[in-house]
Amino acid sequence: MELPIIGDIIRLSRDPKDSLRLSRSNLEFWVNLLIISWAVAFAIWQGVGFAITVGTVFAIWAILSVSLNLVVGFTGLLSVAHIGFFGIGAYAMAILTSDAAYEQLRTEAIPTLGWPFFAALPVSVGVAGLVAVVVGIAFNRFRDDIYVLVSFGFAVIAFNVFLNWRSLTRGAFGIHEIERPAIGGWVFDGELEFLALVLVSLAVVILIAWFLMTSSFGRVLTAIREDEQATEVFGYQVTHYKLAIWVISAMMAGLAGGLFGSWTTFVDPNSFVLMESILLVSIVILGGLATIWGSLLGAMAFVLLEEGMRFLPFLPSEFVGQGRQVVLGILLVVLMLFRPQGLVGRYKL
């Protein structure tokens, strides 16, 4: 996309009146520029330490939104279940690695398994995948509006399991002292090392997503998205394809969950409420359906909004959470009105 933009700039310098038309046709370019420069400005303004934190939060949300886009955008299954798999990944990490000896409240003790991070991470991914197989088989008969509803049901059930299966999750107390990654004696307790780890994970997720979507497998998903029955008529067992992408996407969410648990070293059910799932779907739609880059931009804009609002002088810190929801809600409505395909997307919802 570089070349047309250079061409535009040349044309603009000749005829400034063109700018309005061009700024419309190049909206995507300006959106990219805006978000990236906003991120850079933010990092410079708040310093490296804060930028590292924001970068880590971004990478985790980006893994979630890219993976959710595989299901919502590429395959056309509107699911709000994603946060459940994120939670499963985080809890798997917490339960396997946390050191319960630190817990103050002995009545809510869970066994100390003391696994290392790198042994627990594949389990986070695997358990999320296993649950997704079972849930996905049950979901396969549904589509469209009903699909949203059943996925809603799953998110609610997952939250309630985190909250009420106390012998496993310690319920509302949450689990502390989750292990940080270590290779040999080298512990990733520095934030920069952790940032590197999540960015590498994000890169792997992007690579897998890109590979899937440019393969013939991805082409069938695109076809399913457009016309499930016509796809089936040509010999594609649609249910298998839908299940496969669902499970892959859930495993990526499990990965994000495992990383998140280890990064915060604490999990409790509040991180996995349905609202987070809806925010996530909004990010995917805002960024653009069926575009990996759009999901990255969406996640970046979201994290900047959230973190940026902490610095609004007139906004008390306890309203930051609600504030970001209001802003995101408004953005979503405005965007759906004027740009239903999202910031850089190809499809309308």
């Binding site: 695109t222 457009e226 029955q229 016509a230 008529v233 010999g235 594609y236 190809r346």
Partner: peptide, 24 residues
């Protein structure tokens, strides 16, 4: 046989309204 297996039996269906994949 199931719908998705019929094409292997040598039957191809061109549905009403064409239904080509417009994004491909």
């Amino acid at each position: 046989v199931a719908t998705h297996e019929i094409v292997q039996e040598g039957i191809a269906f061109v549905p009403q309204g064409r239904r080509v994949f417009t994004h491909l």
